[in-house]
Structure formats: structure tokens, C-alpha cells
Design a protein around this nucleic acid. Structure first.
Lengths: 337, 337
DNA sequence: ACTTGGCACTCGGGAACACAGAGTGCTAGA
DNA sequence: TCTAGCACTCTGTGTTCCCGAGTGCCAAGT
């Protein structure tokens, strides 16, 4: 049904349309790409492609424009991810290397990605769930209050102030700190609840109310932060682009953690490090936009996802290359720290 | 030069134009507001106001529109801050009360303000400079690395991983922690450098390299975070509005910490808790937009600033009311924690 | 001296219209 | 199966025209 030349025509249409933003006609096509056939032949192929739903014409007498289905075929079979130039790579490397802490890594990553792709970049903070406890700290503020600080192996730090049910002096706090660390050090965050379940019972009875209070806050911290933080950058890149959906809707979605989360993709498929491309109407939450995303994280354990969001008409090969490269570099940085 | 009626006309023009977004003509003015004079009289007044530069007409034969100077006069002399309704106040209170930590307070505040004003809200994180050290924590990660955690009285937490010049065991770390806290507890962040200046000299010689390393990171943390973090929300509200400057420029400015900082206003004037209103061209960094901002913080010491950014054509009394109210509530919350 | 009604003038913006140009589909021939 | 030619169909643009809102100014009234 679709011979090689028809596919070549489709590829040419996508490439031309992406770069010019104008419906592409048979004549221009036959000229610019050396298809070695006449415009009339191209027209026949275009008619077939339109019949199959890969392209469409905005008006009766205008050139053709790829449909979502057309982009899909292009991404799946007609293009290959375009690697970044050496200069770009070096730029990424030096830019990310300067980060001082996790916050900084994420902020730099999202800005970098936005600049590189000229789209809106979205980065999810590394998930707590797969991290492990590196240290639990209890800091006495006064005799009825302590601050709980939870440090994970990904460098993330969570803190909460705890109101204690009774006055507790510093040596007792130090003792509790030691007990907690002995219990939790290196423990996966997801295993914390079961790990601490029987902790009160193993302690002298007078410590139990205090420990119970601390543990309840600790568990609450884990749960609350389960809905992860997501940041974006490059909203200015939306200014030029035109979506089938209103600009307002896109901006609103960007500020909704939940929607953003879903746009990046439901939590890891079986191959989380693969590039996910969702095109236009394939995207249930914000139709008219495309999302290119991937998981990142050190080696086998994927920590979170990152990607970009843009109009359906985007340069997929380049965007995919940038997303993949940035994901790799940030994974590397995280693994090293 | 400007008698009472002319001022009344100006006020009416501003109010009408803000609510309708259409140049307002003499006839409509004389009707809607009961000025008890004929359109012709109004026209004379308008001519005078235009002569003085308070209003202007977009086209030879269209109604009048306030100039920046006109809005300025309106804000200064013709309007008063509109307090929020009881319902709105309660909403603010309950919404902010649910915050669990500083991050959460700031995030909630900025969203609240955006929703309340239907503009872009901007909130600066509380300044470190005026905070004091509540606790310094050293967490051993392995024998060559420790994590430095700095906790301030505003609940802010900074952390850095430190590579030590030599192996240090846990008891020595504990000792150093005690020394540091004894030295710094309650100390204003701005005084930290002088406070620790002679610390190495007061310690045994073998501790000095390690302490020097730690202190250098500590001081670096203070300096780096001196350029404060700023967040914004409500970018979607820009979608409808029209600026004399491009939407793209506004979005770019919002993502530039430095520009945003300057928009909020140079650090506190002599009366930091007063509302600052900068209208259109008065604003050197992003002409064509207006900024309503104020300082916030507990009582006498202002911690940071917050405000909103919008088109010159905005409802100043309402916006000012919202900004002031939110600043007060968030100050209250911060003082309590 | 200020206010008012009247009147001529200006100009923006929408409707109607014509037109050039790009692109198509179709058919007949190589 | 490809190509050339041709008639057809649109969109977008430029032009013209006209309505109406709004103004500025002037002369008359209070």
C-alpha cells in the first residue's frame, strides 16, 4: 500500500512543513528534494497518503500538512534520533557539572533542556520511593521541639519540625537519633514503614510516646512527598508557537503538578529509559501538543522522568536527541554525587 | 489647574477603561457616572487632561485612555486600597494555615496571590541575611565526606556535601559539630563570617585543615544563596492580557531571577512594608507592565518581598488590597512558626 | 466665566468585491 | 506506471466604500 516512494514523500512533507510552517505543495516537493519524479506523480502519492490519513490539506487548494498519524509514522519509521554536536555536548557537560546540590541540578537541567530544544522543558525531581536513607538527623530546637531531617542517597533533604508530647533533653535525643539510624540506615524509603513498625516495642516504655510522635511525622513526610515535585522552564518559547489548544490552557497545565506528571508519562513502563513520544491527540491530557520524554537516573534504577512539551509541529529528531542526551548526562551527574 | 471635576473625570475614565478595556468617550462618561454636566463640558475637561498628559487618544477619533501618568495620579490621589471581603480573608487564612514547611508556605502564597488577583504573582524567598542560625549539623556520610546542614530561624534549610582533606571519624565530627554550634547558635547569618574568623586558631592544630574546609563551604553557602530564590505563578493569566511589550518578553523576564528581583523592587526602602506601585514606563526593566509589591516578614524585620505583575491596565485598588492582605497573612504565618 | 447645544470633520473598522497565485484532480498520452 | 496539460477551486490580499463613534470648535445661554 505504501511503497518506498510514498514514504519518502511523507518524510519530505514532514521535514518541509516543520522547517517552513507552511503547507507544502507538490511542485515545491518535487523540486527541493530530488525525488526524480514529476509533481504530478507526487500528487498521486499525496492523494494516496491523504486517503490513508497521514496528511491533510487545510483548505481545498493549499498544500498538505502532516496529521498526527503522519507524524507518528515519521517518528517510528522515517527518522532517526539526531545526536547532538560535540560543542553542544561539551556545553551540557560544563553547565551541569557546576551544580552544587540537587535543587541546583534540577534547575540547571530544566533550563538547559529548554534552551537546547527551544521548547518548554519539564523535569521531575528524583523519586523518593526508590531512594534509600542515608541519614536521619534529629536537631533539638528547644526541649519540646525537634527538627527531623531526612537525607537520601540522591542528595535530597526533607525536613519537618516536630512538636513533642513531653520535654526531652539532648542526650535522649542523641540516643533516639542513634536508634533511628541503626534501624534505617541504607533502608529503601519504600521499606521504611515496615522497618519501623515494631520499633516502639523494642524500646523502653518511657520512650514510646516520643518515638511514636517522631515516627508518625517521618511516615507522613514520606507519603506527602510521594506526589513528586515537578518544575518547568522555557515558557517563553510558547510565545511564538501555535497550538490547536489555547495558550492559556497550556500555561495552566504547566502549573498543575498533577497534569504535568501525567504528561510526562505514567510511571515507568517496562523500558523506562526509552524515549516516549506522544503526538497531538495521542496525548489525552492536553491535546494539540506533543511530548517527548524519557526516564533518567543512575543505571538500572530510574529515578524520575524529564522531557519537553511543544507544538505538534516540532523537529522530532533533534528534540529526541536533546532529551536523550540531557537525560544521560544528568543521570551521570546524579550517579557521581 | 485641575479642579475637582476634572479629577472626577479622570477617575471615571480610569475606572471605565479598566473594566471595559475600551477607550471611553465623553457621552458614555456623562451618562454612566452622574457628573451632572453635559458631554460637551466633559469634552473640555478631557481636552485639559490630555493637555496635561494624563490621558491620550489612541486614534484621532476614539475615546480617551489613561496614560501612565494618569494611572499614577489615580493611584496616588483618586483611589483607596480596597480591602478584601470576609470570605476572601477566611480563604486566605485556611489556605496558608495548611503549609507544612517553608517551601510549602512560599508555594501556597504565590499560587494564592495569583488566583486572588488574576495576575502573575511573584514571591521572593525569605532572605538569609536577616535570619539567624538555629542549628548547624554535620552528618557523616563516610570517613572522607560529611554533609553540612544549616538551619535558620525562618525554617530554611541549606545543605552541602563536603569533601574532607583527611579521614575523620564520627566522634571527631561530633566534637566539631558541638564547637560549631557553640560558636554560631543564634548568630545572625550576616555575622557568621566574623564570628568564625578566629575559630581555627582556637582549636588544636590537627583540627585546623578540616575546620578550614568546612568553614569555607559554610561561607560559600551563605554567599551563594545571597542572591535569593524567587518563584512565580499564574503565568496563564497573561494569556488574555495585552502588553505594549511582547508576551515573550514578559515570560522571559519571569524566568530570569535577576530581572524578577529588580521588578519586585530594590531591597527595602526606608518603609519596606509600604505598598510599592510601579506603573508602565516607571518600571525600568520591563516597560509596559505594572508591578504592585510590598515587603513581608514578621513585624519589624522585613524578610523579603512579594507582589504581582500585570498589564498597566489593571484594577489597582483591588490588586493593592490583595497584595497587602496576603503579605500580612504570610508574615503572620512565618512569625508563628 | 463657565456651560451647553449644534455642527462639521476625522478616522477606524467592517462589508463587499475583485483578483492573482498556488495547488489540486483529472484525463489523455508516452 | 509516469508525465504533461488543463480547468477548477480556493485563500489571502488589496481596494473601495460607508457607517458611526467621537472629537474640536463656535456661538449662544446662564
Amino acid at each position: 500500500m505504501l511503497d518506498d516512494r510514498k514514504l519518502a514523500v511523507l518524510r519530505a512533507i514532514v521535514e518541509d512543513y516543520v522547517s517552513t510552517n507552511e503547507p507544502v505543495g507538490s511542485k515545491a516537493l518535487a523540486e527541493r528534494h530530488n525525488l526524480k519524479v514529476s509533481p504530478a506523480t507526487v500528487r498521486n502519492d499525496m492523494a494516496a497518503l491523504e486517503e490513508e490519513g497521514y496528511i491533510t490539506q487545510p483548505h481545498t487548494s493549499a498544500g498538505r500538512v502532516p496529521t498526527d498519524k503522519g507524524y507518528r509514522l515519521f517518528v517510528d519509521r522515517l527518522s532517526q534520533v539526531k545526536p547532538l554536536s560535540g560543542a553542544e555536548r561539551r556545553a551540557i557537560e560544563t553547565f551541569l557539572a557546576g551544580a552544587v546540590d540537587l535543587d541546583d541540578v534540577v534547575t540547571r537541567t530544566v533550563r538547559l533542556l529548554a534552551q537546547l530544544t527551544r521548547q518548554v522543558a519539564v523535569v521531575q525531581y528524583p523519586t523518593l520511593t526508590r531512594s534509600t536513607v542515608r541519614h536521619v538527623e534529629l536537631v533539638p530546637l528547644n526541649d519540646r521541639r525537634v527538627m527531623l531531617v531526612l537525607i537520601t542517597n540522591t542528595g535530597r533533604v526533607e525536613q519537618r519540625v516536630i512538636e513533642l508530647p513531653e520535654a526531652v533533653d539532648d542526650t535522649r535525643i542523641a540516643h533516639l537519633r542513634a536508634v533511628l539510624n541503626a534501624c534505617l540506615d541504607g533502608c529503601g524509603l519504600i521499606n521504611v514503614p515496615e522497618q519501623v513498625a515494631d520499633l516502639p516495642e523494642r524500646l523502653p516504655i518511657e520512650d514510646r510516646p516520643v518515638v511514636a510522635t517522631i515516627l508518625s511525622v517521618l511516615l507522613e513526610t514520606l507519603v506527602e512527598r510521594h506526589d513528586e515535585k515537578i518544575v518547568f522552564a522555557g515558557a517563553a518559547n510558547l510565545a511564538g508557537a501555535d497550538f490547536s489548544v489555547g495558550l492559556r490552557d497550556v500555561l495552566e497545565a504547566l502549573e498543575e503538578q498533577v497534569v504535568l506528571m501525567r504528561l510526562l508519562g505514567e510511571t515507568s513502563t517496562d523500558t523506562p529509559s526509552a524515549l516516549t513520544v506522544r503526538i497531538g491527540s495521542e496525548n489525552p491530557y492536553l491535546r494539540g501538543t506533543s511530548v517527548v520524554a524519557t526516564g533518567y537516573g543512575s543505571g538500572d534504577n530510574q529515578l524520575a522522568r524529564l522531557g519537553v512539551l511543544g507544538p505538534t509541529r516540532m523537529d522530532y529528531p533533534v528534540t529526541m536527541g536533546a532529551v536523550r542526551a540531557v537525560a544521560r548526562y544528568v543521570s551521570q551527574i546524579l550517579a557521581a554525587s
